[in-house]
Amino acid sequence: MATTPTLDRHTLPSGGRVRSFIKRLRAGEEAAYLLTLAAAATILLITSLIFYELYVQSALSRHKFGFHFLFTQTWNPVTGDFGALPYVYGTVVTSVLALIIAIPQGLGSAIFLAELAPPKISDALAFLIELLAAVPSVIFGLLGMYVLVPILQSSVVPALRTVFGFLPVFQGAFYGVSYFAAGVVLSIMIVPFIVSISREVLLAVPQEQREASLAVGANRWQTTWHVVVPYALKGIMGSIFLALARALGETMAVTMVIGNVPQIKASLLAPGYSIAAVIANEFTEAVGDLYTSALIELGLVLFLVTFVINGLARLMIMTTTRQGAHS
């Protein structure tokens, strides 16, 4: 074809617009545009549809219970009383516990890999750890049930009790499945996330910043701690938020080790329940519209919470990368 179809737009008289459109459509220009646009629109549609469905399908439960839904403890399908507090509590406790374990360990690893280790070792280890971020969660659940829980029972928890036994969080009977087990499994799952994202953020800190610090006589650790980490702080926070969002929405691994008992206990060693776990266990068996609606409302809660946290995380990571581009 000698002339490019786009040029026709200007050369044709206005009456030929339809013909020109068809011509361009046949030439592929317009078709390609419409096709990609349709795909992009589908993404928008799906995302809105998810929110819409969750919102509409949970209407029954939302109208009946209002905000009390999140703050009451009864979960009784027979009487039609649904309060989600034990699930919310379990989700929050396990996620926070996971972060308490994973943040120091993940950040320590990321700092070591990005700043202190010889580059060859760093690249190889980072490759392996990133690979581990791809391990499916159901596998962590399996390992949690049959490997981690026995280890916790035989050595970790007894050891913790001898040191911290006076704390209420380590009192009471321990049967293995518990908030504690769920938190530990979650921490193992999110550490690779924190490591790989934080490492990338640290590596993005301009070399001039390190040089400026070394040039006045700071050593490696001082440079890392007083210059590189503060520079990357927002991005690091972003990686933690991403990990948190993942922990909050994690279903399989938690379901398999948390014990699935809807109760609120101060002791981390007691069994509990989480939002994702109760949906996984009860959704297909829920009888009656209100019951289903209550479970879908839990899905809505999960959706909104992860939405906010993911948004914050992206914002933080974005600002760090921009800062890097500037100076």
């Binding site: 992009a40 993404i43 928008l44 799906i46 995302t47 809105s48 549809l49 998810i50 469905e53 969750l54 399908q57 969002a245 909050l248 929405g249 994690e250 279903t251 994702a276 949906i279 996984a280 959704f283 479970l295 879908i296 899905g299 999960l302 959706f303 992860t306 939405f307 993911n310 948004g311 992206r314």
Partner: peptide, 25 residues
């Protein structure tokens, strides 16, 4: 911006929630 935002949002949706929605739809 809008599409990127929707994509990120979709990426962050917990997988169990996707299960619920596909069940309903």
């Amino acid at each position: 911006f809008v599409i990127r935002y929707a994509t990120d949002l979709l990426n962050g949706v917990p997988s169990i929630v996707i299960g619920i929605v596909v069940y309903a739809l």
